[in-house]
């Protein structure tokens, strides 16, 4: 029989430290998501460009990013980019890697959300002579947003769960810290279990929030004043 000898004292000792490290995880997720939303939106718009060359470039960029492992991209930015004079801290590297990686996924979500808005809305915008900027900002995106929420939310939660990969470039996030604590104290059970539980709790909270956001979002969309 396998023996579980859970040490409460040790668990209580490492928990606050892990929660501190969790802030690093959350920070990487937050800034990574912001970057992902921005690059996703830009890619989605580029793919709708009149210029075939631009649209194809955006498409191939997306395919390329989605077809290579996140870890390879992280290593590339961390170890290869400095050879081109691009020196970035592990956190900045991590945020950029997560942002670009998930931006490629989000672009597909945004694109299909935009495609879901009826042709008549575009035609009315042209007939009213609205600029492309106004058309997207005031007419198309507000209506596309609702359908984008669930899938975008799931990708951001997935990103959150991928942050341990940043431990590979020495970012001191939760998993990295748990590993260090484990090896220093010769006890892995408590740190790793706690990391798992923290991820579980936050993922559950986040997916509930996504579901709420979708439910609360006005069915027709809304526009900024």
């Amino acid at each position: 029989m396998i023996e579980f000898n859970w040490d409460w004292a040790f668990a209580w000792e490492v928990l606050p430290l892990l929660l501190d490290a969790c802030l690093v995880t959350l920070q990487a997720t937050l800034f990574g998501s912001i970057l992902a939303v921005v690059t996703g939106l830009i890619l989605a718009l580029l793919r709708r460009s009149q210029s075939k060359a631009v649209a194809y470039s955006a498409y191939w960029w997306m395919e390329f990013i989605r077809s290579t492992p996140l870890l390879v991209q992280i290593y590339f930015l961390y170890y290869v980019a400095p050879e081109w004079g691009l020196n970035m801290s592990p956190m900045v590297t991590g945020v950029i890697a997560l942002g670009l990686h998930y931006g490629a996924y989000l672009s597909e979500v945004f694109r299909s959300g935009i495609d879901g808005v009826g042709k008549g809305q575009w035609e009315a915008s042209i007939a009213l002579n609205l600029s492309p900027y106004r058309t997207y900002r005031d007419v198309i995106l507000p209506q596309a947003l609702r359908s984008m929420i669930p899938a975008s939310g799931n990708y951001i939660i997935a990103m959150f769960k991928e942050t341990p990969q940043l431990s590979a470039i020495t970012l001191l996030e939760m998993l990295q810290l748990a590993k260090i604590m484990g090896s220093e104290n010769f006890r892995y059970l408590e740190p790793f279990t706690l990391v798992g539980l923290i991820y579980l709790a936050l993922s559950l909270v986040a997916s509930t929030a996504v579901r709420q956001a979708e439910r609360r979002f006005p069915k027709e969309g809304f526009t900024l004043s």
């Binding site: 008549g120 009315a124 007939a127 002579n129 005031d138 007419v139 209506q143 027709e220």
Partner: peptide
């Protein structure tokens, strides 16, 4: 040129969120 023209559509094409 579009400034001189206005169009009304069969299916209205109003902006539903406004």
């Amino acid at each position: 040129m579009r400034g001189q023209l206005g169009m009304v559509f069969q299916h209205f094409n109003l902006f539903p969120h406004m």
